[in-house]
Design a protein around this nucleic acid. Structure first.
Lengths: 228, 228
DNA sequence: AATCGATTTTTGACTCATCAAACTTCTGAT
DNA sequence: ATCAGAAGTTTGATGAGTCAAAAATCGATT
């Protein structure tokens, strides 16, 4: 099989991430979701998915959806690896802002060689997560997938550590950055108000911040590390 | 005008470099040279050059050749800037080898944003030349073009500084690296032998090295800096 | 000046990725 | 059980970039 075009890489990545986002383990991504993730019309996604199926990268069930094969999963994970290492590199080494590296990495991930990516991995000390807290797959495509709670489900008035932000929107990330809500930060949920559709969170030394519930669901938290 | 595809960027870059390589200032690049530089058949180059002419990036004279317009020159210079800054960055910051950065930069130059390139430029201290001694155009596409001598034309038994290597071939660069013939090195030509088709060069503390005349023409040298 | 050979252009075809719009299938509500 | 609407698929077309091979042009040599 020839090297996958960046279009193929993007389809695989989108399918992979859509599979991850599903709660149930049916793992069948509907065409509509895939098409809108890739900003193409549904017919385009159908066509492309059929050719991916012919290459053995996905299994395609007409009118039902698509899922990655083992081969597709591995390729997708390696694309994600390139993306996330690149993001971390741009933040840590190049000094770019947390909020702007996603789009940059979106293009660089298709241009960087494995040599470069491995060099970056080494420079960064084989990191486990990228600047958004997303786990970085290893060279074999294996990836830790811890199950975090969200700001909607974690205990109230209890210290938790912001572990991961599952949205790459630049404006959202900028807001978080300005609010000092970045991965690693210890925070606590002061209250949730269903009527107001918000949660109030506060980091040590900061004012409390109201976050809409839709946004709060994108902030994943872990129990604080054992103190001492 | 929409942003140029990487194909367009590559054509402009190739025309620019072919113009530079010409001694006379006719500056008309024949289609055949362009086609082989880009590894396409001549017909493909003709077709593409005509569309470039329609965009006002080149002036095309059928059966004669092509030259860049001012707009094309500026765009080409900015591509070269991205390429050369990227190469230097990969060597200086990422620690890749002199010999392997060309191909990497060849792809990254089309993916890196202006923000990233300017950030790299700043990190590196607004450098004037890349690892091969090639001058780096500034943000406006302006570039210093010093006129060096080559190992074929410089005075014999006189110290000169290796300033620039006008060939990006990986194997050739590896050879130079192993022979300690890298830009900045002070060397002297011991002899030239037309019959043997070689020149003998020696760097301080090294053995003398025989270099074929074709290769020697690719090594550009400058007078040594005023000592003191 | 006529011609041969090299260079260049033209023509027709192909692949990849895409869209618009017609058509098909599925599903949930009655 | 039907059927309306949502979701998905098919069809036909497009644009970018390419090649192979036929045709045209140029130019150097006789």
């Amino acid at each position: 099989m020839a090297l996958p075009s960046s279009t193929v890489e993007n389809y695989l990545k989108a399918i992979y991430q859509a599979e991850m986002a599903e709660e149930d383990d049916t793992r069948l991504v509907p065409m509509g979701r895939l098409a809108s993730a890739l900003h193409v019309v549904p017919g385009t996604a159908t066509t492309m998915v059929k050719t991916l199926a012919d290459s053995g990268l996905v299994r395609y069930e007409p009118y039902a959806g698509v899922r990655l094969t083992a081969a597709g999963q591995k390729l997708a994970a390696l694309v994600l690896r390139r993306h996330r290492l690149m993001e971390l590199f741009l933040v840590e080494v190049v000094g770019m802002s947390w909020a702007e590296v996603h789009d940059e990495a979106e293009r660089l991930e298709h241009a960087a060689s494995d040599r470069l990516i491995d060099r970056i991995d080494e420079m960064l000390g084989r990191p486990a997560v990228d600047p958004h807290g997303d786990p970085i797959p290893d060279q074999d495509g294996a990836m830790a997938t811890p199950r975090y709670q969200t700001l909607l489900t974690c205990p109230i008035d209890t210290a938790v550590v912001l572990a991961r932000v599952t949205d790459q929107d630049t404006a959202f990330l900028r807001f978080l950055e300005q609010s000092h809500l970045t991965p690693g930060k210890t925070i606590r949920v002061e209250s949730r108000d269903a009527a107001a559709d918000h949660v109030l969170v506060r980091g040590a030394g900061d004012r409390s911040i109201a976050i809409g519930m839709r946004a709060a669901a994108k902030l994943l938290v872990a129990p604080p590390p054992p103190s001492g």
